[in-house]
Design a protein around this nucleic acid. Structure first.
Lengths: 246, 246
DNA sequence: CGGCGCCTTGACTTGCATCAAAAGTAGTGG
DNA sequence: CCACTACTTTTGATGCAAGTCAAGGCGCCG
């Protein structure tokens, strides 16, 4: 069931962390209420991004990380020979921009897949605050570590798995992450194009389309453009072999 | 030129960070001398690992991260269906174990590829110290971010590049990392087996062997078992297209 | 010197890419 | 509201890079 309340979130830009429906999965996890308010003080909420607009560009000086409040975002790297590689898809409550820390400039661009709202968290302030709030420091270390382990799962997927397994894994990843957000694990929209899926999974657009059609014909998923309904969850999980988790 | 002094490093287990030849590329970068000594106080140096011994096992409770002092290490993930995926190769001065932070247990095993010495850095102490030394906190954030960006480069490599490009990229990665350590960029030993290389790059052992033979026949590299001499650096760089950096 | 891993090489197969074209969808302006 | 254009997706036919299967070589160690 597609939950339109998500769409509405970016219409209340003044919402603070303490009230935010996503607080339980976002940066503030495990913080005391007064620490949440301190965090809230440094967060900047701008106007929503329209589809194809960018939160930051590859090459931009690194100044902040961003929490996605609503919508969805892809991160994209440009290779030296000018090709684009999609490095991740992000859903509300997830943090983007941590790639910029190492070299002090972003190595990815973050592009909105639909109208999206983000909370900008200036990094220098976050650093100061982390030094004062041990749980926040710990939380941020954890978020980066989670990014690392997730990327390792993607590496495994790209290194070892067939086209069918890759697609099934991506569908299940989005399914479980939706579920974590109180949405349906069974029925959801894919915010990205076939081309983005293929790029992310190391497949051509034709292969993505063929695999999705096949899963549809086999009755494992119902598919209408970007709207997916997982009809046989167990079969899909068997196909995936590897569960990429949230 | 293979520099045997590297081999000797693990024979001086009492070395401290301030004296360590690797300090300029390891965790202590940009720390004041007294801060380095504080860091040094929490570091534990055990006996060297023999080949195939593990610094930690996947599933182990996360207690520490580890700086590699000498030798080389691979990190390996086990997929649900029992296959192994090599997720990284590590050289002296590099930090391993940051995968364990997110879930509070390691998701990889760290396996010595040859006799190797490591510095164990208990994480709870590192956290405390990071809160007191801003440069250390920053440095550790940077190391994790670097891990993220490097993995994204590997994802791109696996998603978009041919067998030749993957092998060339790995050779160049090891070359530049050796160079950073004051060793030759041109001539070096590959510490890992063909099987490890293939596993890491998403290729079969036969393909790795064929590509290396081809590079050899073309005169781009000289190859004797694990000993590599890059004869035509520019050609190799052209083959790689993408430079995976240190 | 014989057995066991690791690596190389060759012959054959196959999954996915490539090429091509048509159908579907969205956006724009008259 | 429809016509027109441009983009995305689907489907089909063909080709190729890398996988699989198989055999043999090399080095190491007891």
């Amino acid at each position: 069931m597609y939950n339109p309340s998500l769409k509405q979130c970016h219409t209340s830009p003044q919402a603070n962390c303490a009230d935010c429906r996503l607080a339980s999965i976002c940066l503030p996890i495990s913080l005391h209420i007064d620490d949440i308010n301190k965090l809230d003080d440094i967060i900047q909420r701008g106007r929503p991004l329209n589809k194809t607009e960018r939160a930051y560009y590859a090459g931009d000086k690194f100044r902040a990380v961003y929490a996605l409040r609503s919508g969805s975002i892809k991160t994209v790297q440009v290779t030296p020979d000018g090709q684009e590689q999609v490095t991740g898809f992000y859903l509300p409550g997830e943090i983007i921009g941590m790639d910029g820390l190492a070299a002090n400039h972003h190595t990815n661009s973050a592009i909105a897949l639909e109208t999206s709202a983000i909370c900008e968290i200036p990094f220098s302030r976050l650093e100061e605050l982390s030094a004062k709030i041990p749980n926040l420091q710990r939380r941020f270390f954890q978020l980066m570590s989670k990014e690392i382990t997730q990327e390792q799962q993607l590496i495994t997927l790209l290194g070892k798995n067939s086209a069918d397994e890759r697609i099934a894994s991506l569908l299940l990843s989005i399914s479980t992450r939706n579920h974590t957000r109180g949405l349906s694990a069974k029925e959801f929209y894919l915010p990205m194009s076939r081309s983005d899926m293929g790029n992310y999974l190391g497949l051509t657009i034709e292969t993505v389309s063929r695999v999705l059609s096949r899963l549809h014909k086999q009755g494992i998923i119902a598919l209408n453009k970007k709207h997916v309904n997982i009809e046989e969850m167990d079969t899909l999980k068997n196909t995936a072999l590897v569960q990429m988790d949230a």
